[in-house]
């Protein structure tokens, strides 16, 4: 898999290409494996998690699978999970809300949500999400009933966690694609909740 010279613009790229060549020559990786991994990485985005959420809202059997084994539920929708850490799913219900943080670094369910947004990795979010989740959630403009129990999940080790938000009112009869389009990255982290109205808080689209 020799890389064309015009792609070696920087020393880092040259080093990377040389490493790939050596790994291929030694039979450690094959070109097809690399291509499959790159395709899986490119396909990973919040839209994948949103498809899972929408399916769970319309299919109780799928919802049960998703809560029992997030990895199998992702694979059931064709999302590649090979090599990904096990996926746990946290179900929001009326009166119960989950917020995910990784205080140690930036553990994130990349297979189903893509790259973490820049703020997820910030020291401010990581410090405040565990100590003052109500304050953080309020700053996103998210309205929770005052007596809602807030469970903060610090993703510290080998699991990755996503939130299954509650299906918003006013979406009766919506099809799965329309429901999936409502679900944003922040809804599956827990800083926001999905809403069919135009005034919903928009999670950042930025990645970093």
């Amino acid at each position: 898999m020799t890389t064309p010279p015009d792609l070696l613009a920087t020393p880092a790229e040259a080093l990377f290409a040389a490493l790939l060549d050596v790994l291929a020559a030694k039979g450690v990786v094959r070109e097809a494996e690399l291509a499959a991994r790159i395709a899986a990485t490119d396909a990973a985005s919040p839209a994948q998690g949103a498809r899972m959420v929408a399916r769970a809202w319309v299919d109780p059997t799928y919802r049960a699978l998703m809560l029992a084994d997030g990895t199998r539920a992702a694979e059931a929708l064709g999302i590649p999970m090979l090599g990904a850490p096990p996926l746990g799913v946290l179900e929001n219900r009326p009166g119960l809300h989950h917020l995910v943080v990784c205080t140690l670094c930036s553990c994130y369910p990349r297979a189903v949500l893509g790259y973490p947004p820049f703020w997820f990795k910030s020291a401010a979010y990581r410090a405040r999400a565990v100590r003052d989740p109500r304050g953080v959630i309020a700053e996103w403009g998210t309205m929770l009933a005052p007596d809602t129990e807030i469970v903060v999940v610090d993703s510290t080790a080998d699991y990755r966690w996503m939130v299954l938000p509650s299906r918003p009112d006013g979406t009766d009869g919506w099809d799965e694609a329309a429901l999936a389009a409502l679900v944003r990255e922040g809804d599956m982290i827990g800083v926001t909740v999905p809403s069919p109205g135009p005034a919903r808080a928009r999670p950042s689209a930025a990645t970093g």
């Binding site: 100590r131 003052d132 989740p133």
Partner: peptide
């Protein structure tokens, strides 16, 4: 008090 429960993965 801001959170009600904190869940942490610990070995």
């Amino acid at each position: 008090r801001s959170a009600d429960v904190l869940l942490v993965e610990i070995f």
